[in-house]
Amino acid sequence: MTRDSVLAVFEQFREDIDQGNDRRERLIKASRDVTNISKKAIFLLHRIVLEDSPDDRALARRAAASGREKLSEAHAIFAAMRPELVGDRFWRYHRQVSPGVQEYIEALSFAHYVEHDALISYQQVQDTIGDADGPFFPLTLSDYLLGLSDLTGELMRFAISNIARRGGRPKANQVCAFVRGCKSDFEAFVPHVRDLSKKQSVTANSLEKIEAAAYAVAVRGSEYDLPPEMLDDLVAQTTSK
């Protein structure tokens, strides 16, 4: 190659690289936006769930609905990402997209749990990332699992902040059992999903915190020969504004 042809070839490389970089930047930005929306949705859920309400089920449904409404903003962003992630591009930019998707799954599964007391399935998540024409891009097993792992941290916060409320104690026990189930279900995937092992130990940590909270409640109530709901009522009487 002559000097000029070298430069011409590199000119082509520059275009390729710039195009790749620009797309990467756009996707990082999109992913970050999704992350922010999801974080806000999670905050929203925490906030509503702690409100005073006579009907806990209704409150939970309202919280989940608000969370999902917030998350619909993410849906629009995902839709816009479709052309950027078509064909072999998805895996090329997966690392850039992943953080947003995981945070989204964390938020979505939180809303799902608040409403249904159950884990959202892989297919249910994939269904929300797509439209009538099919998925915007594939959901990876690893994003699904890592997103759910983060859910356990939020559930810990949920259980602990909630524990002082009426009915918070049985809820804490329920969350405890749920997180325990998640942890053991995910265990088999650990050797094959990067970073899952780290997240499992965060989950173990959250689990211990929930257990400690449930324990504190049990121990404090144990001195009274009354059912927990009655204890709650007594406390509520004293503290109600």
Partner: peptide
């Protein structure tokens, strides 16, 4: 060995409930 151990530890996790 790892696989077996993982199963065992998984079941033993249930002692807490």
């Amino acid at each position: 060995f790892d696989k077996k151990v993982r199963i065992i530890v998984g079941i033993l996790g249930k002692i807490h409930s």
